[in-house]
Write a protein that binds this DNA or RNA. Sequence first.
DNA 1: TTTTTGCCTCTGG
DNA 2: CCAGAGGCAAAA
Length: 276
Amino acid sequence: MISANLQELDLLATLFSGQMFRWQLDEEGWCVGAVGEHTLRLRQQESIVELAGVDEFFVRSFLRLDDLSLTEQARRWCALDPLFAEAWKRQPGLRLLRQDPNECFFSFLCASVAPIARISQMLQAVCEEAAGDPFGPFPTLEQLLVLRESRLRERGLGFRAERVVASARKLAEKPDGWLESLRGKPLVEIEGELTQFPGIGRKIADCIALFSLDADSAVPMDTHIWRIAKTHYAPELRDASLTPANYERASAAFQRQFGPYAGWAQQTLFYQQAVK
DNA sequence: TTTTTGCCTCTGG
DNA sequence: CCAGAGGCAAAA
């Protein structure tokens, strides 16, 4: 087991904050889900995280507990930024995860213009079609290559079906472990690589970078964060629309305000708008 | 560079 | 009945 209070980690809020989409909560309070090849069972009670099915080292890495003291970082942000302070007061302990890049890639490829409930539904369909189990470990690239666009459309993927098939094919042309190898590289480089894939623009590239590749400064500019950015951090954009150039400006404004871990601050602000 | 439009499907006003 | 939902891409 792992020691973590609700300021440092709110497990439930973190797992269900729109970073991952296939976690299940059972009646005894256990969160059950897959990360890479592992199936995890996690439960937080009284500042203790219990775990089953996997070792502590793996869980600490997945929860990024040794990468950042969220409590200390949040204290600085609260002093600096009233909007963050209010969001933190309502929901502290929201961490970023270190996801399996392959699952994260396809999750956010499917996430285009869809609410969380629908994203979950689509990903369960993808997993069931490719590997037979909607909640099991995410299908390997080899398994994903068997998917047919027509079948995915029948399962409700809509226009995303073609993108999933095409991007899987393109990803298969890369050397083994290519996606993982982007971890730790400069954000602009990661964005440059990921936006080469069909269906992945800058917003989705930033989600993949932030949620699975340790790119802590990435600020995925969705409709909610865009509104917050122009209202609070880049007033000169008040009447602007979200063009690529303005995406960059808004993103930079967030990074100026919150620093190298701007993506973490973004997640707490996002949660208020979109999840809670 | 920016704006517009179509694309799947579901939900809330 | 329609606008909007954690966008992308092609066209103008």
